[in-house]
Amino acid sequence: MTSAFDAVLLSYDEPMANALHRRLGRVLGGTVKRLHGVRGMRRAYRLCAELADTEQFFLADGDFSIDTRFPAAGVEPLADGISMRVWRAVNPVNGLTYGYGGLKLIRRDALRKTGEAVDVLAALPGKVEFCEDTAGTTRFNQSSYHAWKAGFRECAMLTRGSEYGMADADVQDRLDAWTASREGDFASYAAAGARDGIAFARDAARDPAQFDLLNDPAWLRERFTAGHGEQAVAG
């Protein structure tokens, strides 16, 4: 059965985005729209809202691999006051399963009113609902750079302080898991990115404006190349 909601896959430079886009369409049972290569994360999310034809729609990252058993036709609409529902995703390098990289059901109107948080979706008006069910796997470890970037951005934001109100003990558990990443492809780069992200966040605490760099693709690529580029090529 086809889902009652539109769906948009938001991609930038993920190597497997084409295949994962097709997979999403097969599982959701309809046409999945796509926004690709837009600079500026906040702008990209807002443009996704304009692509969707239903007021509530599924939003997937370009590296999200949906579980073929995901019960799309049975998904209930968001209740009043809820801006977004997040399904969990399996992390392929560290054994964690949580909202990072997971599937979202989101309101178009909420995306149009995002605030200025570094984690753009943390600035939605209204409440966020975290679902205990797992919708798929976040396949960010498609290259040395993408694995590093995932660890860097996530651990920099966790070290800065969770914008979703996560308890300190939970934050530390996730930091520990990321820095110990050893499973799957390019796990060592995810671990290195995690360590680099923690160090960056501690330095940036003296100049909070630096955290905006976490959403700058060119800066992230340069940072990776400066610290790990030669190793990545040699490996």
Rank of each mutant, 00 (worst) to 15 (best):
A19K: 06
L20I: 04
R23W: 08
R23F: 02
L24I: 11
G25P: 05
G25V: 07
G25H: 03
R26Q: 11
V27Q: 04
V27H: 06
L28A: 04
L28C: 06
R34Q: 15
R34D: 08
L35W: 14
V38N: 10
V38L: 05
V38W: 03
V38T: 11
R39S: 03
G40Q: 07
M41D: 06
R42M: 15
A44M: 09
A44R: 06
R46P: 06
L47Q: 10
C48D: 13
A49E: 10
A49R: 05
E50A: 15
T54F: 13
Q56R: 14
F57K: 09
F57P: 06
D63M: 08
F64D: 10
D67N: 13
D67R: 04
R69N: 13
R69C: 11
R69S: 13
F70S: 02
F70L: 02
A72V: 02
A72T: 04
A73M: 09
G74D: 14
V75K: 01
E76W: 01
P77D: 03
P77I: 12
D80N: 05
G81D: 00
G81F: 13
S83Q: 11
M84A: 07
M84S: 10
R85K: 00
R85H: 05
R85Y: 05
R85W: 06
V86R: 02
A89F: 11
V90R: 12
V90T: 10
V90G: 00
V90H: 11
N91S: 04
V93C: 15
N94W: 06
G101T: 02
G101A: 12
L103G: 02
L103H: 09
L103V: 11
K104Q: 09
K104R: 14
I106E: 02
I106G: 07
R107M: 10
R107S: 14
D109N: 08
D109F: 05
K113C: 06
G115Y: 13
E116A: 13
E116G: 03
A117F: 09
A117L: 12
V118F: 13
V120W: 04
A122N: 11
A122D: 12
A123N: 04
A123I: 10
L124F: 09
L124Y: 08
P125G: 15
K127V: 00
V128E: 04
V128S: 02
E129T: 13
E129M: 13
F130M: 14
F130N: 02
F130S: 10
C131H: 10
C131E: 15
C131V: 14
T134A: 06
T138P: 00
T138V: 15
T138D: 12
R139P: 01
F140I: 10
N141K: 09
